[in-house]
């Protein structure tokens, strides 16, 4: 039996350690940006399970992200929950939704799957508006600083927020690194590469896909709940189509089916827009050009290209 390759673990551990260290070295602005990018890349990592590893392109993940966000936000706002149980409600809401949507949508494949997930997400977005009495619709609501104290730790404080985001990021990253090397993860890749063959090899493809969907929704929901908790806002914008397309973009940019690709993609996209907006109002033009150039010259995404050309061992 082949010895376990140590390099992926070193990469993930190194990334988490570097991020922790960066907090003390980076100027305050960038130290404030990183937790946001980490939380959003948790969302993207969740998306990557389904898209990058299982090969299912969903256009509806905003519903899982916002299920987490509203699960936490609404229970804090209306039922006076404390953050820990509220976070749990967020996770449960996203997981349940993923199970239901998965059970229905996975009857379809390809573009039909894209549309079905898109339609469910659009219904979710409209429902957030329809129940505006509780959600305040598009305007959303702010979660007061006093309600964002988890086990005595005030998450609106810069340091606490950073490390809370890092902990969630690390848990997700290591979980995914573990999952994709497990038998389950390899089965998902087998489905992505050739579904018919995976079925012939005796895999229960339907069940595996549903499990991937649930895991993916759970992680996306964790991202949404964390976003609301750490940045104090929940609103219907995060349930809109645009926020379903974003994780797809981040994953494709960073490298689909790589463990750190979602983080790299989210980070790249953030700074691309942030930097270019300092030079020009037309930063969307710059972002658009960058996307086009990426498809022309680095089709596998940043990490994907690195794996293809330089470091074949990249997980």
């Amino acid at each position: 039996m082949k010895r376990e390759d140590w390099r992926p673990w070193a990469l993930h551990g190194g990334l988490v350690a570097t991020l922790a260290l960066l907090y003390f070295v980076l100027p305050p602005y960038h130290a404030g940006v990183l937790p946001r990018v980490m939380v959003l890349s948790v969302y993207a990592m969740g998306y990557n399970i389904l898209f990058g590893y299982t090969g299912l392109l969903s256009l509806g993940h905003a519903m899982f992200f916002s299920a987490g966000m509203y699960g936490l936000g609404l229970t804090i706002q209306h039922l006076d929950f404390t953050p820990a149980p509220a976070f749990l409600v967020g996770l449960i809401a996203a997981t349940l939704l993923a199970a239901i949507v998965g059970a229905l949508a996975l009857r379809t494949v390809g573009v039909a799957f894209m549309i079905v997930t898109l339609m469910f997400a659009q219904s979710g977005f409209l429902a957030a508006l329809y129940f505006g009495e509780y959600t305040r619709g598009d305007e959303g609501f702010a979660i007061q600083q006093a309600d964002r104290v988890l086990w005595g730790v005030d998450l609106s404080n810069e340091t606490n927020r950073f490390f809370a985001a890092l902990i969630l990021f690390a848990i997700t990253l290591f979980t995914i690194a573990f999952v994709v090397r497990s038998a389950f993860g390899r089965a998902l890749v087998a489905i992505r590469e050739n579904e018919a063959r995976a079925e012939m090899l005796g895999y229960n493809v339907t069940r595996l896909k549903l499990q991937a969907m649930i895991l993916s929704g759970l992680i996306a929901g964790a991202g949404g709940a964390a976003y609301a908790l750490l940045f104090g806002y929940a609103g219907a914008t995060f349930a809109s189509v645009q926020y379903s397309i974003l994780p797809l973009l981040w994953v494709l940019l960073g490298g689909a089916g790589t463990t750190i690709g979602p983080f790299v993609g989210a980070l790249f996209m953030f700074y691309l827009i942030d930097f270019s907006s300092e030079f020009t109002d037309a930063y969307l033009l710059v972002a658009g050009l960058a996307l086009v150039l990426l498809t022309l010259f680095a089709r596998a995404g940043i990490v994907g290209e690195l794996r293809r050309r330089v470091w074949g061992w990249l997980p």
Binding site: V25, L26, D80, D147, V153, D154, T159
Partner: peptide
């Protein structure tokens, strides 16, 4: 439920900076 008005933090950024020493502090 009572809502904690707890502003404690694990440690502050500035505090950590002074611990990290002059070199790191100077850059930031």
């Amino acid at each position: 439920m009572p809502k904690g008005k707890n502003n404690s933090s694990m440690f502050t950024r500035r505090g950590a900076l002074s611990v990290l020493g002059a070199g790191a502090a100077a850059t930031t």
